[in-house]
């Protein structure tokens, strides 16, 4: 569970960290200078919004960082960790361009809070590389020309990876059903389905 750094408390319910530090600081200043503290003389300090510390395990590496509870995993991946392979699309769980794997299962990163993802294994499209080489699914997408503009591709690739981990030998129907959470505005669907099928064979060491 994420460790609360700065629990939000109403002033009447207890001492907030912010208030506590403020009073200690003022006391220390007063003690050091011997001058009575005057609130109007001290510049205001604006702290960042309530932050919690999380440890996110992404592509095999642990990242410790402060996040706001309202930050989505998508936001944290892109804006805090510069993992921009995960794309921003609809931001409402309908297009699939932000698809990541969480514990091996596909999820929309735009519909997942970063705080929720603590304690899970997160895999993004960057994590599907095989060393410096493209992974099987990525290779298959290139070989089958499974995109036009390419914007949805990283989401498609991760969705395909999730599908093949759950079902290494999918039928065309399984592929259509499993990939249906990813929209392609260029409508490269036929090639995408072929690529998933091709990737299944590559993963089994078959067709090149």
């Amino acid at each position: 569970m994420p460790r609360k750094i700065d629990p939000k408390k109403e002033p009447d319910k207890g001492v907030t960290r912010r208030g506590f530090l403020g009073s200690v600081g003022a006391g220390a200043v007063a003690a050091a200078t011997g001058v009575a503290h005057r609130a109007e003389a001290v510049p205001e300090i604006t702290e960042p919004d309530e932050m919690v510390q999380v440890a996110l395990r992404i592509n095999g590496r642990t990242h410790r960082l402060l996040v706001e509870p309202r930050w989505t995993l998508l936001f944290v991946l892109r804006e805090r960790l510069a993992l921009t392979g995960t794309k921003v699309g609809c931001e409402r769980g309908e297009c699939g361009s932000c698809t990541v794997l969480i514990d091996g299962r596909t999820r929309y990163a735009c519909m997942t809070l970063a705080v929720e993802a603590e304690g899970t294994e997160i895999t993004t499209v960057e994590g599907l590389l095989d060393g410096e080489e493209l992974g099987e699914v990525q290779q298959a997408f290139v070989m089958e020309d499974a995109f036009q503009c390419g914007y949805c591709t990283s989401g498609q690739v991760v969705a395909a990876e999730g599908l093949l981990r759950a079902n290494p030998s999918p039928t065309l129907n399984d592929i259509r059903h499993g990939m249906s959470g990813n929209l392609c505005r260029c409508a490269a669907y036929v090639h995408i389905f072929k690529a998933v099928d091709h990737a299944a064979e590559l993963k089994k060491g078959g067709r090149q």
Binding site: G93, G96, Y108, M111, A159, H177
Partner: peptide, 12 residues
């Protein structure tokens, strides 16, 4: 269950 939304949503 199979008819609900899509794979990513069903996982969540």
């Amino acid at each position: 269950a199979m008819s609900l939304a899509a794979e990513q949503v069903r996982n969540q």
